[in-house]
Amino acid sequence: MIEVFVSSLLNGVVYGLLLFMLSSGLTLIFSMMGVLNIAHAGVFMLGAYITYQIGKYAGFWVALMLAPVLCGLIGAAIERYGLRFVPNRKSHVPEILFTFGLLYLIEELVVMIWGRNPIPATVPEALDFPLFTLFGTSYPAYKAFMMAVSIGMFVSLYVALKRTRIGLVIQAALTHPQMVAALGHNVPSVYVLVFALGSALAGLAGAIGGFTWLTAPTLAFTVGPIVFVIVIVGGLGSLAGALIASMLIGILQTFAVVVDYSLRDLFAALGVTVSASSPLYELYSIKVAQTAPVIPYLLLVLMLIVRPRGLLGTRDA
């Protein structure tokens, strides 16, 4: 039992940290600009592909440096040459549709450049060894590396936002966008900067996540919705909230997989037997493990009902 607990905890933490990297960029973008950037997962996917492509010629480490930069530039371009010209931005619906169209565009571009099959994005050799073995389960080094990168990312982002001047402006804009504009900061260029930063974070996540998850054109559509969940559950304007939400979801999902009990078992424990003819028999028979992938959405709905501003949110969406 303890071995399952430990390995699930490790898996959950790694998964959660990867989710955090994926969603921290959108937390910035969404909190500050209110843009529910559906193409965020597309940028993440581009990060994975760009890393693979550069890695082929210049090695993984160069790619790891360059991919976030390129994704940042792509993000800046999306804001500067796309979103900025979207009419009626206040309602945000046109923006959402614009980024939705963009996601299709990114997917098709990826298909055109890299084809439809998953690319063999293999773990770089320097990281391809089991770091340690616990209860007979080996723990690959690259997962530890992923952890290190995402924690490093969180710390440096946190410091940058708290300690630097531009960070303070961004932070202020996260919570009081109108006030920042009123104070005379060039909000449009701050917007481009935030979008670039958010996209660069997605690119970094893609660079790291590419070889754990499968780098295929369908990647963006599969991971897309979960990013919103984390942003909302974490709370607007809060990176720490996003971190906690990611870890929570990562760990909950991982542990749920282990639980093979259903409502029927619960009833049985309470001395109630449910017959197969009962109308909700099927519902009662669903194992917790089966529900693992929908846990984030359950959490989302509950959170929005109970506490709409999210875990550490400073204001309502």
């Binding site: 796309g82 010209f85 046109p94 614009f98 169209g101 963009l102 299709y104 565009l105």
Partner: peptide
């Protein structure tokens, strides 16, 4: 691809 471009064009 055209689909995506069409949406973006309508929005813009």
């Amino acid at each position: 691809l055209y689909f995506g471009l069409f949406f973006m064009a309508v929005v813009l």
